[in-house]
Amino acid sequence: MSFDITPQLKAAIEKTGCKGALAAISRNGIVETFSAGSITAADHGRAFYIYSISKTFTAVALLKLCEDGRDFLDETFRSLMPEAPIPDGITVRQLLNHSGGLSDYFSSREYQEAVTSHPTKPWSHEKLMEVGLRGTPLFPPGEGWAYSNPAYGLLKKLIESLSGMGYYDFLLENVLAGLGLRDTRAFVAPDVNLELLEGEAPGFEGDFRRLYRPEWIVTGCLISTVTDVARFYDALFGGKIVSETSLRKMMETVDVLKTSPAVSIPANGLGLMHFRKDPLGDAYGHGGGGPGYTTYARHYPDLKGAPFTLSLVLNMTLPQTPFALADEIVRAFLDRAG
Rank of each mutant, 00 (worst) to 15 (best):
C18T: 10
A230C: 01
F3N: 06
S2Y: 11
Q8K: 05
G100S: 00
K258W: 08
G338S: 11
M316N: 13
A262V: 14
L325H: 04
S35E: 08
F77K: 13
L211A: 08
P87F: 05
I329P: 00
R46P: 02
G20Q: 02
E160A: 11
E200M: 09
L22R: 06
R46A: 01
L138M: 12
G144I: 06
L194V: 02
H44S: 05
Y168N: 08
E83L: 12
P82W: 04
E75F: 07
Y212E: 11
T321V: 15
S103E: 11
L128Q: 05
Y284A: 04
S311M: 00
V263C: 07
S26A: 13
I223R: 07
A201P: 09
G285P: 01
I25K: 01
G37Y: 00
I329Y: 00
F333T: 10
A151M: 08
V229P: 03
G20F: 02
G29K: 08
S163P: 08
G289D: 07
G20W: 03
R46D: 00
A23P: 02
F308K: 00
G285Q: 01
T56A: 05
P214D: 10
Y105G: 11
Y284T: 01
P214T: 08
V115I: 12
G180A: 03
P261Y: 09
P119W: 04
G239K: 12
F208R: 12
E200H: 06
G180Y: 09
N193G: 06
S243Y: 14
S26L: 09
D234P: 00
K277A: 15
R248W: 11
L222I: 06
V31G: 02
E14M: 06
E205C: 13
G285W: 04
T116G: 04
S260I: 14
A201Q: 06
V256I: 14
W123Q: 07
T253D: 04
D282E: 15
G199F: 01
F106L: 06
R213F: 10
L138Y: 05
D207C: 06
V218H: 04
R70L: 13
T91G: 10
A151G: 14
A21E: 00
P87M: 03
